[in-house]
Design a protein around this nucleic acid. Structure first.
Lengths: 139, 139
DNA sequence: GTTGACCTTCCAGTGAATGGAACCCTTATG
DNA sequence: CATAAGGGTTCCATTCACTGGAAGGTCAAC
């Protein structure tokens, strides 16, 4: 199969598939004309990668997961550990964003958003000691 | 003030401050010895930048916000718009992560995490049509 | 005069692709 | 036979916001 078909099947852009070959995640064969020739197993691997990436696993995680997938003697504990670490990363990220969101939405609510220059958002960023103090006082 | 003091005051690494000069966010003076010489206003700007970045604004957002801050004829609506767009970005990101989190934690819970090879996480990534089907059926 | 803590510039790398240029291969059509 | 469309190929540059490191200049103290 050529790269275009694989792109359609796996949902990954051809560019990305080439990149994945570059970094050694897949190793398609080559046809006589120099075109990449993907086996069924390559397509499967790429779809696997697509789903792992969609869950936010890093490329290095993906590499490990693929290795574990290929190893029928693996311990599921190894897989689980990777997934749990990733879950922690996600939780930390969500917490960070949620905090940003809280502060920001607070500021947005306080801002008139009209033609006048007075702006609690800027005031907060500038840390002007003002009447318009917000949650940032807790810093 | 030299860069080290400013780094301490603003909480930004010296490297980052140099980078911000590079991309034109601050323009410190120079002493005779070639050292950067920061005015009070530069320190203030850098602290502003630090807070804006901590809220997740992009560098380009920061550039716009600084410009608006300097412009006493601004309309707060302009500031608010930038903030609201950013809030949307955050919300989208949180939603994305929350979905990842849900799927992933589901899989983690289903995985024994022992010495045996059977693993619902890998099964899901490989899309094996199995007893261990999860929410992914909705795809 | 030498140590050590500063400061300088410049170059490379991060993650995970993505965009584009320049060029080759295949197939169909005039 | 020419050529045009629609594949494919490689290689290089760019993204974002820094960060690390090398090689070297400056300054204050001892």
């Amino acid at each position: 199969m050529n790269i275009g078909d694989v792109a359609d099947l796996s949902g990954l852009p051809a560019k990305t598939i080439r990149y994945y070959e570059d970094i050694g995640l897949v190793e398609p064969l080559r046809s006589a004309n120099g075109y990449r020739s993907f086996r069924q197993s390559d397509v499967h691997k790429l779809a696997f990668l697509g789903r792992a990436r969609a869950l936010g696993f890093t490329i290095e995680d993906c590499r490990s997961l693929l290795k574990l997938y290929a190893d029928t003697d693996r311990a599921s504990a190894e897989v689980k550990q990777i997934a749990e670490e990733h879950l922690d990363r996600i939780d930390r990220k969500i917490a960070e964003l949620t905090e940003m969101r809280a502060t920001l939405s607070h500021l947005v609510d306080a801002c008139a958003g009209d033609h006048r220059p007075d702006c609690p958002i800027l005031a907060d960023l500038a840390m002007e000691e003002d009447k318009t103090r917000t949650a940032r006082a807790a810093d």
